[in-house]
Design a protein around this nucleic acid. Structure first.
Length: 545
RNA sequence: GCGCCUGUAGCGCAACGGAUAGCGCACUAGCCUCCGAAGCUAGUGGUGCAGGUUCAAUUCCUGCCAGGCGCACCA
C-alpha cells in the first residue's frame, strides 16, 4: 500500500534527477519521508538540500530546478491523477501533495481486508531466534526480567506480523555454580527445620521461598545431592507460571544441562582449535577473541579444569545457527554489555557475520515505593518481582508501561504512583478509544456497505485520522530497524488522540446515511488498526471498560 | 581508570540530521438536554556546559559537568 506509492515517488524523483542531469551512481539513497509537520504535504524529500553543496548552488535554486524536472516526469507517469501538487517549501524541501482519493482507497482496503491489509512482508520468511529473559531458576522473576519479557514478546509479535519466522527461546542455566549454591541454601534450611542452628552465608539464597522448598524437599525425602535440581525445577515452574500470567509464551526452553551432555561444547572447541582460535596459557584454555575486536582474550576452561560461563554459551550460539536461524536477537541486561564483543567474536570465529547477531541491551527498571528506591538483591530475596507488579498494576498497564520507553533508556517506576494514577495510565487512553468506537458501532442502525462513497470525509480531523491510520506500517518498520517495539506505544497514543479529536468535533450517528456510513467506515478502520496494535503489544482490546 | 546508558517545562517522557521542539501529570480558564467527560479546547513553561562538522544539530563528533550500570579463570 503506502510502500508502493512511496516507491513510485522515489522513482519519479530519481527520474527528475536524471532529467536535470544530476543522477550519479554513488549518490546516497534518495530519502522520501513523511513530513514531521502535516502542513508540508504528504511526502517530502530533502534531496535538493543534499545536492546543493556539490552543485555549488543555493538549496532553493537546486530545488526549484529539480521540481520542474519532477513535474515533467509526473506528467508522463501513472501518478499524474493522484498528485495534486509538488512544490518547494522551507529551506529547500520538495513536498508532494496527494489527492484525497488515494487516502480513501487505502482506508477502503483496511475495512474490506481487515488486519491483512496492514501486513507487509518485510521478513520474507527469514528465520529469527529471539532469546530473552533467560533468568537463572534460582528465584522469582524480577522487574528487570519483566521488562525484558515485555520487550521480547512484543518484538516477536511485531516481527512475525511483518513476515519473519520467529521463535522465542529461554536459555535455562540449569546447572553450575548458581544451582549448586541454590541446593546448599535449601540444604541449610533443611537442617534448620530439623532444629539445628545454622549460619547462613552471605552469598546463599535467602528468600523465604527457599524455606518453602526445604519443607517440600523434606516431605518428599529428596537426597542432598539432588536438592539443587529439585529446587531449580520447583522454581522453574513458578517462573513459567509468572510468564504465562504476563502473557509471554516461549517456543523453546533450552537447557544448558542438555547442551553440556550433548557433546556440542566439545565439538565447538574442536572447531575453534582447528581454526587456530584457541591456545593454552597459565594452565587455562583461552579463546582468541581479540582476533575479532574484543579487548582481551577470554578464558573458556579454567586452570582447575572447569568451564567458564562463556564455554557453553559459545556452543549455544553456534547451535542456534545450526538449527537454521539466520538472524539471532538477544535481549540482555546492562550487566551483560561487556559480554557482547566476546560472543560476537565467537560467531565470527565460526564464519558468521557480526550482524547476524543483534544484541539489545534492555536497561533496568528502577522500582520505587512511596518515593523510596528499592534495592535489588536476588540472594537476599529483596527485590520487586514480576508477580508483585502484575498483582498491583495488572497485565495490560504493566506491559504497556514496560514498553513505552525506549528499551535503551532507564525506567523509573513508583508502584504507589502507578496504582494511584492507574486510570490516567496511557494504556487506558488507547483502550478507551477502542471501547468508544465499539460503543458507537454497537449503537448504529446503519451498516457499512462495501461500495460506500468515502469522499464525503472532507473534514480536517477525518483526513488526518485516515493519514494516521496509514502510518501504522511505517511504525512497524521503525520497530524492525531499531529492534525496539516502543515506537508502537507512541504511535497508538497518537492514533487514539487523532480519533478522540475527530470524535469530539464530528458526530458519526444521526447524519444522513451517506455521511454516517462513511464515518462508520472511518471508525471501523481505526478500530482495526488500534486492535491490531494492542494485540501486538499483548494488551487487551476491550469493547467495554 | 576503561566501557555502556541517560541529561529536553516543576515532575515523567517524545522529536529517520530538518521546517513553529511535541505529549502526559500538575496548575489556570472553558466544553456534556446530543454516538462513552477514562474525552476535547485554550493558557503557563524547556534543549546540562563549551567547542566542532553541516545549508540545517535536541539528534553526529570532541572535551567538561551530573546521575545510573558494568568492568572476574562469577553466572
Amino acid at each position: 500500500m503506502k510502500n508502493n506509492i512511496q516507491q513510485e515517488l522515489i522513482v519519479l524523483v530519481s527520474a527528475g534527477l536524471g532529467r536535470a542531469g544530476w543522477l550519479q551512481e554513488n549518490r546516497e539513497a534518495i530519502s522520501l519521508d513523511l513530513p514531521t509537520d502535516k502542513r508540508f504535504g504528504d511526502f517530502t524529500t530533502n534531496i535538493a538540500l543534499k545536492l546543493s553543496k556539490e552543485l555549488k548552488q543555493p538549496p532553493r535554486v537546486v530545488a526549484g530546478q529539480l521540481v520542474e524536472s519532477i513535474r515533467e516526469e509526473i506528467e508522463k507517469s501513472g501518478l499524474k491523477d493522484l498528485i495534486t501538487q509538488v512544490k518547494v517549501e522551507g529551506a529547500g524541501f520538495i513536498n508532494f501533495y496527494l489527492k484525497e482519493d488515494y487516502f480513501y482507497e487505502e482506508l477502503r482496503k483496511i475495512i474490506t481486508k481487515g488486519k491483512e491489509a496492514l501486513k507487509v512482508d518485510l521478513g520474507k520468511g527469514k528465520k529469527v531466534l529471539i532469546e530473552f529473559v533467560s533468568a537463572n531458576p534460582t528465584g522469582s522473576l524480577s522487574v528487570a526480567h519483566a521488562r525484558q519479557a515485555a520487550v521480547g514478546d512484543c518484538l516477536s509479535n511485531v516481527l512475525s506480523f511483518i513476515g519473519f519466522k520467529v521463535s522465542r527461546e529461554y536459555y535455562l542455566n540449569d546447572e553450575g555454580n548458581q544451582i549448586n549454591i541454590l541446593g546448599r541454601s535449601v540444604q541449610l534450611r533443611l537442617k534448620e527445620l530439623k532444629g539445628e542452628t545454622i549460619e547462613f552465608p552471605e552469598n546463599y539464597y535467602q528468600g523465604d521461598y527457599i524455606k518453602d522448598i526445604a519443607k517440600e524437599a523434606q516431605n518428599k525425602k529428596i537426597k542432598d545431592e539432588n536438592l539443587g535440581d529439585f529446587a531449580a525445577g520447583h522454581i522453574l515452574k513458578i517462573i513459567k507460571q509468572e510468564l504465562d500470567d504476563f502473557g509471554v509464551k516461549f517456543d523453546c526452553w533450552y537447557s544448558q544441562k542438555e547442551l553440556a551432555k550433548s557433546g556440542k561444547v566439545e565439538q565447538a572447541f574442536a572447531q575453534l582449535k582447528q581454526k587456530g582460535f584457541l591456545y593454552e596459557q597459565d594452565g587455562a584454555l583461552w579463546f582468541k577473541s581479540t582476533a575479532f575486536g574484543d579487548d582481551k582474550d577470554r578464558v573458556i576452561i579454567k586452570s582447575d579444569g572447569s568451564q567458564t560461563y562463556l564455554a557453553p554459551d559459545i556452543a549455544y550460539h553456534q547451535d542456534k545457527f545450526k538449527r537454521g536461524y539466520s538472524w539471532l536477537i538477544n535481549l540482555w541486561g546492562p550487566d551483560h554489555h561487556g559480554y557482547i564483543n566476546r560472543i560476537k567474536a565467537s560467531i565470527e570465529a565460526f564464519g558468521h557475520k557480526k550482524d547476524d547477531l543483534s544484541v539489545v541491551i534492555v536497561q533496568l527498571a528502577t522500582i520505587f515505593r512511596n518515593g523510596q528506591e528499592i534495592q535489588m538483591s536476588t540472594r537476599r530475596g529483596q527485590y520487586i518481582t514480576l508477580r508483585e507488579v502484575l498483582d498491583e498494576v495488572g497485565k495490560d498497564a504493566s506491559r504497556f508501561f514496560f514498553l513505552m520507553r525506549r528499551t535503551s533508556s532507564h525506567l523509573d517506576f513508583d508502584l504507589e504512583v502507578a496504582k494511584k494514577q492507574s486510570s490516567e495510565n496511557p494504556v487506558y487512553y488507547v483502550q478507551y478509544a477502542h471501547a468508544r468506537i465499539c460503543s458507537i458501532l454497537r449503537g448504529s442502525p446503519v451498516k457499512i456497505k462495501d461500495d460506500l462513497d468515502l469522499s464525503v470525509l472532507k473534514e480536517k480531523e477525518e483526513l488526518s485520522l485516515i493519514k494516521k491510520l496509514l502510518e501504522f506500517e511505517a511504525t512497524l518498520n521503525i520497530c524492525l530497524v531499531t529492534c525496539d517495539p516502543y515506537m508502537l506505544t507512541v504511535y497508538l497514543q497518537e492514533l487514539a488522540e487523532s480519533f478522540h479529536k475527530f470524535y469530539d468535533l464530528h458526530r458519526v450517528l444521526g447524519q444522513d446515511d451517506a455521511l454516517t456510513g462513511a464515518r462508520l467506515a472511518l471508525i471501523e478502520g481505526t478500530k482495526i488498526v488500534l486492535s491490531c496494535g494492542l494485540e501486538l503489544l499483548g494488551i487487551a482490546q476491550p469493547e467495554k471498560m
